[in-house]
Each structure stands twice: as structure tokens, then as C-alpha cells.
Design a binder for these strands. Structure first.
Lengths: 114, 114
DNA sequence: CCCATAGTTCGGAATTTCGGTACTAATGGT
DNA sequence: ACCATTAGTACCGAAATTCCGAACTATGGG
């Protein structure tokens, strides 16, 4: 379910984050520290994303090694594997997050941590 | 044909480089400074990539704002837009190139320039 | 002009993604 | 224990994307 960090491939990370919806989900996980899948729906701007799509987006992020998901009662807690990814591919995640932030004019300073 | 750098979107860059073949092409352009499409075929490891596929790979890289292509007689000279991309999304390209280098064990030091 | 070489375009097959419906898992109330 | 409710996943057909062979276009040399 969760790949070992040694098995994580850069192309999987790039592919996962090349989708704006997934990038937004990941950014949100970084900001809030922890997000359950369903509540992310309404919060992702105007677009309504069906549950099944959301579920597969989380799956892609999980299998790319970007997040870790664990059940907590009836809901799912997703948190980023920032430190692990950072150790394996230094600077990759900050650069990507900053690129998205620069694009959307979301003047968010320089990303350096989760 | 070549987008203005202001129109370049991070998702396009991530998508373009999330394909290992395109990433290899781009890395090769960075190393050699300049590459024509057809000769890249044989040089990209063992795999034989048809001309038509190569052509569309170059198109994706071009439209992502990563490379600039210009005819020089009968052949095509492709060179990277590294500095422009670097100005728009600082650190993004080095991080991606390093990630691929780290994965393939191609101990290539820290990427900092074209 | 004709040929050779370098790339693009086109079109159909294979693959991937999207999303609705049906299903499973866990919890709380009664 | 049972049912209702809520969270998420599995499955499957539709839509979109990618792949690549064949036909086409462009440029330069003889």
C-alpha cells in the first residue's frame, strides 16, 4: 500500500503532482498537516470532485510515496511523507510547491517544510 | 509554437518531465547543449523510439516551455530554455534533474546549470 | 528536377483517466 | 445485536490521452 521510500521513483512524483487537483490536495495536506479525503472535496475551490475520483487521486499520491494514509475510526487521516521524500530527493518538493505558488500568485513565501 | 515564459504552467513542466523518455531527452539536451531529434533515437539507451513518437515528445517539451526548436537547414536544433524557466520557477529544474540522477545512480553531482 | 534526409501529420489501436453505482468498513443509537 | 449513517473503495463503461506506422511536407545536394 505504501511504498518504501527506496522504491519511490521521481517520475511517479512528477506525474502525481502534474495534476492540479492532486497538487492542490497535497498542498492542502501540507498546510493543514492532515486531511481526510471527503472534506477536501468542498474545499478545493469551486469544482465538485466525486468521491470515487477523490479516492483514486489519494491512491495516486499514496503510491507515489507522497502521503501516508491510515484509518482513524471511520475516517482516513492522510499526512505527507515530506521528510522522507526530502531525504531521498532533496529540494524537489519545495521547488514544486513554490512553482505552483508562484503561478497562482498565492504569495506564500518560500516553501521549506511541511 | 514557443509559449511566452509568462504563460508556462508548472503542471505542464511536471507533466512533460514525468515521462522518463522526455526527461532523458531533456537531460541529454542539457548535457550536450543542443540535440537534433533523430539522432537522439539511437542514443536513448536500448529502446528504439519511432520518429513520430519522438516528434510528439519534442512537441510536448516545446509547449511546456522547456526547449526551443529552430530549423537549421534540414535538421532541427533544440536547446533548453533553462535560464528562462529558472527565472520563473527557481530551483524547479535542478531539483527534477537531480531527482532523476539520484534514482538512476548516475552520480552526476548537483545540477545547477544547463 | 529528382532524390535523400529530417520532421510533421493523420488515424486507429492500446492505454489511462473520469465518474456513477454498488459495495465494504467502522461507529453510534436504540 | 441490529440497523442507520458516514467514509472510503471496487468495478466498469465512457471519455480522453498516448503510441506508432504510414503517408505527407520541407530543405538541400547533385
Amino acid at each position: 500500500m505504501h511504498p518504501a521510500m527506496a522504491d519511490v521513483r521521481p517520475e511517479a512524483i512528477l506525474h502525481a503532482l502534474s495534476d492540479p487537483v492532486r497538487a492542490a490536495i497535497f498542498a492542502r495536506i501540507l498546510r493543514t498537516g492532515c486531511v481526510e479525503a471527503c472534506s477536501a472535496v468542498s474545499a478545493l475551490g469551486d469544482r465538485v470532485i466525486p468521491k470515487s475520483s477523490l479516492s483514486s487521486h489519494f491512491k495516486v499520491l499514496r503510491e507515489a510515496g507522497l502521503i501516508r494514509s491510515e484509518r482513524h475510526g471511520v475516517e482516513m487521516r492522510n499526512h505527507s511523507r515530506w521528510d522522507e521524500v526530502q531525504a531521498r530527493f532533496p529540494g524537489l518538493l519545495p521547488a514544486i510547491i513554490n512553482a505552483y505558488a508562484a503561478e497562482s500568485g498565492t504569495e506564500a513565501g518560500t516553501a521549506t517544510g511541511p
